[in-house]
């Protein structure tokens, strides 16, 4: 929303063409709106000239709001004698294979490491979540269709 970015991809290639014919190996441009670093990479093993790279950052007033989610997934301690089933991926957790179907597991069910306990939808793909341990499901810690971070405790097994 800062509006115009004054350099197009064609402009960047034009800058590279100028640098390529000269003695400089890098260019670092910083404005109030962006920073662009154009650099020649290391020469290849056969002595051929290295290619070029572009590195952009868009300047912003506020820091990137990213850590918030990680902090939010702060969890309570795993009780003594329990094992946690954790999410291997961030995404939406589903307890059943399809809406209306029975849940994969309920409290009191026995699981083996490869027992499916849910599905995590990440990037529009369904990824089966397995128990990863053996025992009895003691607690289910997330709701169906809840957004979860990677590493989140899904269930406790005793």
């Amino acid at each position: 929303m800062k509006g115009d970015l004054p350099l197009t991809p064609d402009d960047v290639n034009a800058i590279v063409a100028i640098l390529d014919g000269g003695q400089y190996d890098r260019l670092d441009i910083r404005t109030g709106r962006f920073r662009l670093r154009v650099a020649r990479s290391e020469d290849g093993p056969d002595g051929e000239k290295g290619g070029w790279t572009q590195q952009w950052s868009l300047e912003d007033d506020e820091p990137v709001a990213a850590e918030a989610e990680a902090a939010a997934s702060e969890e309570s301690e795993i009780p003594e004698g329990m094992t946690a089933i954790r999410a291997t991926l961030p995404g939406t957790f589903y307890r059943a294979p399809s809406p209306g179907a029975d849940a994969f597991v309920e409290v009191g069910d026995m699981v083996e490491p490869d027992t499916p306990v849910g599905i995590i939808e990440t990037m529009k793909l369904f990824n089966p979540a397995a128990a990863g341990c053996s025992g009895e499901i003691a607690e289910i810690c997330v709701d169906n269709a809840e957004m979860i971070a990677a590493g989140r405790v899904l269930m406790l097994v005793k």
Partner: peptide, 24 residues
């Protein structure tokens, strides 16, 4: 530390620069 290639005959179409996020 996102270094996309650049130069003649190279085109990059991306929204991921330094600090860019690929959300889940």
């Amino acid at each position: 530390a996102v270094r996309w290639p650049a130069g003649a005959g190279i085109r990059v179409d991306t929204h991921i620069f330094d600090g860019g996020e690929v959300p889940p």
